[in-house]
Design a protein around this nucleic acid. Structure first.
Length: 429
RNA sequence: GGAGGGGUUCCCGAGUGGCCAAAGGGAUCAGACUGUAAAUCUGACGCGAAAGCUUCGGUGGUUCGAAUCCACCCCCCUCCA
């Protein structure tokens, strides 16, 4: 498999996915002259990865596609400590049980992006708890700690605000994080001859720490590649919507919601995101951009991005289901949906609530379906003409939902605002 | 252990006895305009239909009345030991 090496660095540069190379001039040459082992770590800070983690993860995949061997590392150990990099305040520690369960949930998510069965550059899944759990304190301080200068560590940008800024501080626990991540790199170098680490640009300090440590402990020159942190043109935070974080896990964010997230990406960001989040070639992406510019009206790019990203994360089936729901709900005529269309929407993961009996006041229904947080909000939405039932705007707060309105005697589609739908299911008459 | 500073509604941040459900900004939500964009404008933003009720780290207290005063406790920060 090593014979088909491509220039991964050129590819990353092309896609604006390369922020910095660490480890000196030799990095590109190193990657071009042979199949290398490349690692990227993901800390368990929740039960699922979110879209923000996709950039480095896909970069790892890009390395594999370019002929290198990827190691996806789950931070079973580092997740117990907490990375202080560019965090404005100390975080509270999660229990070991919790972190352990998150590790188990992250593993399959990481795995699905990489190929574990492709010969010499098959992916490896590792957990840094494996080599830190039984490391004794004195040994660690003597072998690893001795190589770090606190003077240098407090100069790092990543912890500067925690040290300089009035009103903030940093515990020794978090301060030690860098030692652990650095040690991971040197350990992976020893175990797997891993010579490249990929990470977001916020990981620069931790990566260079690992490069130095590996040189000191094993006399090996290793390298780092940092990827951009995804930002949005309007300055708001990437990966969050009104309903919260966009997760990879289908139980936390349905494929439909995931698809909608990408579909709603701003024009100003969409071509950048195509480069970051899809495997379409830059030539294809430029072509999309050109044709969008020439056509007036709605660009194609969001649809393509949504399709590609959803396929990557939720597979072809997830994508078709998501696209099918979107098509049904946004193409207008909700009243024309057939009974099986509606049943399919439910199966496809449109949020759905079973009601036991009718009539139910509309205000009540909005609260029960979580389309409104409180009765007060529900009333406000109704009076703003933001609520519709089966596609018909309802502006009277005291309206009751009755069985006779139900489509095919069984379903009601509630809509709040322009984009939020909820299926209400009634017992069969 | 000592000295000092601080903990306000999602976030930042005013408020230092009644006019405070608590300024201002941000975020968010809805509407108009649109392309399920962006920008802009309008409105909402503790709960309640309302009367009213519950909030300003916690618990008690002073007072006709407390986010504001007092006591104790918890947590954070800075400096000293």
């Amino acid at each position: 498999m090593t014979e088909s090496l491509t220039d991964i660095i050129a590819d990353l540069e092309d896609r604006d996915l390369l922020v910095q190379l660490a480890g000196g001039e030799g990095a590109r040459e190193h990657l071009l002259s042979g199949s290398r082992t490349v690692y990227c770590g993901f800390d368990p800070t929740a039960e699922s990865l979110h879209v923000g983690s996709m950039v480095p993860l896909l970069v790892l995949k890009r390395f594999q596609m370019a002929g290198h061997q990827p190691i996806a590392l789950v931070g079973g150990a580092t997740g117990l400590i907490g990375d202080p990099s560019f965090k404005s305040s100390e975080r509270s520690l999660n229990s070991t049980d919790l972190v352990e369960s998150w590790v188990e949930q992250l593993k399959p998510q990481l795995g699905r992006f990489l190929d574990f069965n492709c010969g010499s550059n098959s992916a490896i899944l590792a957990n840094n708890l494996d080599w830190t759990r039984d490391y004794d304190v004195l040994g660690f301080l003597r072998d690893v700690g001795k190589h770090f200068s606190v003077n240098a560590m407090i100069q790092k940008d990543s912890v500067k605000q925690r040290i300089d800024r009035e009103g903030e501080g940093i515990s020794f626990t978090e301060f030690s994080y860098m030692l652990l991540q650095s040690y991971d790199f040197s350990e992976l170098n020893k175990r797997y001859s891993c010579s490249v680490q990929v990470g977001g640009s916020d990981q620069w300090g931790n990566i260079t720490g690992g490069i130095d440590l590996t040189r000191r402990m094993h006399q090996q020159q290793v390298f780092g590649v940092t990827t951009p942190l995804v930002t949005k043109s309007d300055g708001s935070k990437f990966g969050k919507t009104e309903s919260g974080t966009i997760w990879i896990s289908p139980t936390k964010t349905s494929p439909y919601a995931f698809y909608q997230f990408w579909l709603n990406v701003a024009d100003a960001d969409v071509y950048t995101f195509l480069r970051y989040f899809t495997f379409l070639s830059t030539v294809e992406i430029e072509e999309i951009e050109r044709s969008d510019r020439e056509a007036q009206g709605r660009p194609e790019a969001q649809g393509i991005l949504a399709r590609e990203a959803t396929r990557l994360v939720h597979g072809e089936e997830g994508y078709t289901a998501a696209a099918r729901i979107s098509q049904a709900l946004f193409s207008g005529d909700i009243g024309r949906l057939t009974e099986s269309d509606l049943a399919q929407l439910e199966l496809d993961g449109l949020p759905c609530t079973q009601f036991e009996a009718l009539p139910v006041g509309l205000v009540d229904a909005l609260v029960r379906t979580e389309l409104a947080k409180s009765n007060k909000m529900a009333r406000e939405f109704i009076s703003n003409k933001a609520v519709s039932v089966n596609g018909e705007v309802v502006s009277e707060a005291d309206v009751e939902l009755t069985g006779s309105q139900a489509l095919h005697g069984q379903y009601l589609i509630l809509k709040r605002g322009k984009k939020l739908f909820h299926l209400v299911k009634l017992p069969r008459p």
